[in-house]
Design a binder for these strands. Structure first.
Lengths: 343, 343
DNA sequence: AACGTTCCCGGTAACGTTCCCGGTATCGTT
DNA sequence: AACGATACCGGGAACGTTACCGGGAACGTT
């Protein structure tokens, strides 16, 4: 079952078999045929470990993802896998828990598995430039933020939407409908930079509209999970001040919130408008359809491997791609005024 | 950056370094300390390819999944990963498209990567016993069916729910509420054995209740995707006969169907009851909450690696584990009679 | 004092590939 | 007819690691 067996079976040397297997030109058609026949006959499959050992590169890129429970990542990961395959790379997935030291662990994994590069998906790794450089592996960040601006932009690449600006846009949509008491639902700002950025957009939109920020309308959960979002919204409805609109920093949180609203007897959008960011598949099937800013998930994933592939090919330095969302007008937006009049 | 560098740095042989790296007993404390210091100092990370090459086993199991777009698989895969890690295995994921020859490709992958075993997740591979044996890799099937009974039960292991019986139970619940015109929503029977089994349960429940099967109420989609389920339900509502209840063979299809019902102006459960099987997270957040038979996803995944680990350890032959679902009474079930009276 | 044990440690052959280098036909050229 | 070029193939080193075998030191035992 090794290359040697194939060589003996077909009466050639191991070198020749290797050449045939790797599409090298210096081999005659007749020999190539004999070898291929032997391969089929013996059901030979090359040993990847041995192959990777002798070559320096593995032709594999790693995707380290924090919070894979977020359904938004599903299409991103799929598009990464497809794009990687098209570019001749294999994708290996590695989930990490939120916590310190995980990036080092991922880098160690990358080095031990001889991965060519890394795609960091959905997390916040506030490392110093020195620490980042110590990774020793080229990487590109996806749906990720350089918290505190500690990373030197020239030392890495990234592709994502402009979270702050898009959140600003979402909240502005609510404001333009006359809403003033706008609640925001987010997961832990301290741990999640994406959440933090979108929260900033919320704050700035309110400020620019001359609306005072009410801390009691900021509903923060400790984790991203839907049950937490549901429970937090329930508590906000029970204990917090009144609000006519809700901005959720993620579709999945919005869906949980809509359930909480419904359970509390509040209708969407009559009693409360809802808007979010992400555009996960499920958000098309809520009743009413969730109004949300759809991230170009496929493009994000494809561009990430595109940039990484360029870096790996030697050409192309660091790039920071900012993509735009597209608004899907669902049915969760209502006007604040007409609402009041209707009552 | 190799083991040799570490050996030279710490003034010992490569053998000794290897020994301390693999927790072998025959090494003194002082030397162990020196080596560990060197490892840290040089940021040494073992080369997995070389390690795998010399050992026969890789301590990795592959999960080949067909239709990873099904959100039901998410927790299953996660639990497999966790259980694998606990058992000292690494998990590698491999998605396949529906199509022939994919299992062979997966087996080739397993052999080329020297995977210890395979978990086949959510598919139907109707192979002959000879073909199966030719895989050359121990495997256990998960949410999977031995279509046509062609596989010798003694030649493999499996863990899943009893799809036929659970579907029977779901439809029985509808029947017990007085429903007679019960539609069924499923994806391609010809390609998906799970779908086929659940459809069988539907047919048998109707038959045992003395209800004639109406082919016009059998809504089949060509693919599993939610848009297909939505569209098929829409068409059923527009063109098909009246029905007071719907059995969807999967939660995700049920959610899409509920949206179609809503868009058609039909209320759930007043105008139409809905029941499904799976118990995905999203189904808790529909309005009303979906009534469904929850699969023990975590247990399924954990048991799958448990059985595989036993097989790999040499002990334990083939086992076929059938787990039970638990009914979550949501709000999508109504009575047929009271409904009619209310009108 | 000689010997057997135990405890460490080093040398070295594998593991299955790829790749470089060198070698042998074959063939056309002068 | 001798020679260079070309096409094709085999030999063997290397990749980084583990596992086996053997050997030396220290120590207790008779």
């Amino acid at each position: 079952m090794t290359i040697k067996d194939v060589a003996e079976f077909s009466g050639v040397s191991v070198s020749t078999v290797s050449r045939v297997l790797n599409q090298h030109p210096d081999v005659s058609e007749v020999v190539r045929g004999r070898v291929m026949d032997a391969v089929r006959e013996l059901h030979y499959v090359p040993n990847n470990s041995a192959r990777d050992l002798v070559k320096t590169r593995t032709d594999a890129i790693g995707v380290v993802v924090r919070g894979a429970e977020n359904p938004f990542f599903t299409p991103v990961i799929r598009s990464i896998e497809n794009a990687a395959e098209d570019a001749g790379y294999e994708m290996v997935l590695h989930q990490i828990q939120s916590g310190a030291g995980e990036l080092e662990a991922a880098a160690a994994l990358a080095r031990s598995k001889r991965l060519n590069g890394l795609i960091l998906l959905g997390g916040c790794y506030d490392y110093t430039p020195e620490q980042t450089a110590a990774l020793g592996v080229p990487f590109v960040c996806c749906t990720y933020t350089n918290r505190f601006g500690r990373l030197d932009p020239a030392s890495y690449s990234s592709v994502s939407i402009d979270d702050r600006a898009e959140a600003y846009r979402a909240v502005q949509l609510l404001l333009s409908r006359g809403h003033r008491a706008i609640a925001v639902l987010l997961d832990s700002v301290s741990d999640r930079s994406i959440s933090q950025l979108r929260y900033q957009g919320y704050c700035e939109a309110l400020r620019d509209a001359g609306v005072a920020l009410d801390p009691a309308l900021v509903a923060e959960t400790v984790e991203f999970e839907m049950p937490a979002a549901y429970e937090r919204t329930r508590r906000l409805l029970a204990e917090g001040p009144a609000f006519s609109a809700l901005f959720a920093i993620a579709d999945s949180m919005a869906i949980a919130a809509m359930k909480a609203l419904s359970d509390a007897g509040r209708r969407v959008p009559e009693d409360c408008s809802v808007i979010a960011i992400d555009g996960i598949e499920m958000s098309r099937y809520t009743v009413p359809t969730l109004t949300t800013l759809i991230q170009p998930a496929e493009t994000i994933g494809a561009q990430a491997v595109g940039i990484l592939a360029e870096v790996l090919a030697g050409r192309g330095g660091s790039r920071h791609l900012r993509l735009e969302t597209t608004l899907r007008p669902g049915g969760t937006l209502g006007a604040a005024e007409t609402d009041r009049k209707a009552r």
